[in-house]
Simulated assay, not measured.
Amino acid sequence: MTHLITFQTDKFDPRGESENPYNPIAGEGVLNWLRTRLAPAIALSKPEPEDFGWCCSVTVDECVYFVVASADLDQESPIEWALQIDKRRSLMDKLRGRNQHGPDDPLTAAIKSAIDTEQEFREISIDTATR
Rank of each mutant, 00 (worst) to 15 (best):
R98L: 15
Y65L: 06
V67C: 08
K112D: 08
D127T: 05
A39P: 01
E28I: 00
D86A: 12
E80H: 02
P21D: 11
N32G: 00
G102Q: 10
Q84M: 13
C56H: 05
G53N: 06
P14G: 09
D61W: 08
W81N: 01
S125E: 10
T9C: 11
R88H: 15
L83N: 12
P103G: 11
E123G: 08
T128R: 13
D74T: 13
N20Q: 02
Q8A: 13
A129C: 03
T117Y: 03
G29H: 02
E76W: 04
R89L: 15
R96D: 05
P24H: 10
R122G: 10
S77I: 05
W81K: 00
E28D: 01
K87G: 14
T130A: 04
C56S: 12
D86I: 13
E17G: 06
S45K: 07
H101N: 15
L83A: 13
M1A: 06
P24K: 09
E120G: 13
C63W: 01
G97F: 03
E118I: 07
P14C: 08
A82Y: 04
A41F: 03
Y65R: 05
K11P: 00
R15Q: 14
L95C: 00
M1W: 02
G53W: 07
L31W: 04
E76P: 11
N99L: 04
I126C: 13
Q75A: 04
E120P: 02
S45L: 05
H101K: 06
T59L: 14
A129E: 10
P21H: 09
S113Q: 14
S113P: 00
A109L: 02
A129H: 08
A110F: 05
G53S: 08
S125N: 07
V68N: 05
R37Q: 14
P49R: 10
S57Y: 15
A129N: 08
K46H: 09
H101Y: 06
D86T: 12
H3S: 12
I115R: 10
T128D: 14
M1P: 06
L31V: 03
G27A: 02
I85A: 09
T117A: 15
W81H: 02
D74V: 07
R37Y: 01
G16V: 00
R122Q: 14
Q84C: 10
I25L: 12
L31F: 07
F121Q: 06
E50M: 05
I25C: 01
E118D: 11
I85N: 07
E28G: 00
V30C: 02
T6A: 11
E123T: 02
D10T: 12
D72V: 04
P24W: 05
W54Y: 11
W33Q: 06
L4Q: 10
I5E: 04
T36S: 14
K46T: 12
